[in-house]
């Protein structure tokens, strides 16, 4: 099984890229065997992807690191969830062109993960605690659902515009029905709100626990916390608006809500990336440690001076 260690990012990224190209050809011509080919390529990519994730987790865990706690792991995790969703859509709506919208997001996430690399990893000891795990995983699922909701929202808007302009459907590919897109977007909005909410609350809990235990904490006015709270508030308002105001559940409004949620997410991720999040905790921890060390050193030096200056 050592060959499994030879699986690289290129393997699954290339598989998804090929699948995307095959999906793209559906727009132009009919080919009976293509759907089997797409399934085979995506499943191969999914296997490679999953294997890579598992092996990387094992390897990094052994080295006191946590793969999913790194930017690359986190991006690959989100991409993995999107591929699961894509396979589900292929099963439910085989004739639709959902792949043309979902696969680019997957490829972008893999690209972003590769580019960002391992440098901003959580400290493994922190990430391994239950609440940290809940915090990271719920945010991961929340992010994936927001991205998926965005693709569904875009599909809804395109399909709705096309129908308003009375363009007949293509014989080769078609969009999912408006009803299906709307219901799926609503579900994703609910799931993403819950997951981002759990992520935020668990993050707050982690901070409080750390504070009580005298560990390093993020200040409550940290841009990352504020932007996360804004994202969650937006999702919550969207959800409540959607639940309480009936016309909001109809048609394009749901699509607009999920697309706007994605934009909030992009801003939020940008802030996290710019200001740092876990690493700031790490840096903060390191700076506190160094302060303590300096303080201890200072004490020792003072002791030495005292001793030197002693009677």
């Amino acid at each position: 099984m050592t060959w499994l260690y030879g699986i690289s990012i290129t393997c699954f990224a290339a598989s998804y890229l090929v699948a995307f190209c095959l999906e793209l050809t559906r727009v132009f011509f009919r080919a009976p065997l293509r759907k089997y080919l797409i399934n085979a390529v995506v499943l191969a990519g999914f296997f490679a992807h999953s294997t890579y994730m598992v092996l990387q987790t094992q390897v990094q865990f052994a080295g006191a690191g946590l793969f999913l706690g790194s930017w690359s792991g986190w991006c690959f995790g989100a991409a993995w969830l999107l591929i699961v969703a894509y396979l589900w859509v292929r099963f439910r709506q085989p004739q639709t062109l959902a792949g043309l919208f979902v696969l680019p997001m997957v490829i972008c996430l893999i690209g972003a993960g590769t580019w960002l690399g391992q440098e901003l990893a959580f400290p493994a000891n922190e990430a391994r605690t239950v609440w940290n795990a809940v915090h990271g995983l719920s945010l991961l699922v929340g992010t994936a659902t927001v991205i998926l909701g965005f693709t569904f929202g875009i599909m809804y808007l395109l399909q709705s515009t096309r129908l308003k302009k009375k363009r007949p459907p293509s014989r080769l590919v078609r969009y999912p029905s408006l009803e299906w897109l709307q219901e799926s977007s609503e579900t994703l909005l609910l799931v993403s709100t819950v997951m981002i909410g759990v992520g935020l609350l668990s993050g707050v809990l982690v901070n409080v626990i750390n504070q009580r235990m005298g560990e390093t904490v993020l200040p409550w006015n940290d841009p990352v916390i504020i932007s996360s709270a804004i994202l969650f508030t937006w999702l919550l308002i969207s959800l409540l608006f959607n639940l309480c105001y009936r016309p909001a559940r109809q048609g394009r409004k749901v699509a607009y809500l999920v697309v706007a949620s994605f934009l909030f997410l992009v801003v939020e991720l940008g802030i996290v990336l710019y200001f740092g999040h876990a690493t700031r905790q790490q840096e903060s921890a390191e700076s506190q440690i160094s302060l303590r060390q300096e303080a201890a050193l200072g004490k020792r030096q003072v002791g030495l001076v005292d001793r030197e200056a002693g009677p």
């Binding site: 399909q159 129908l163 459907p169 078609r174 029905s177 009803e179």
Partner: peptide, 10 residues
Amino acid sequence: GVFTRQIFER
């Protein structure tokens, strides 16, 4: 056959 499927799932 064509237009209902574009809008309604069922």
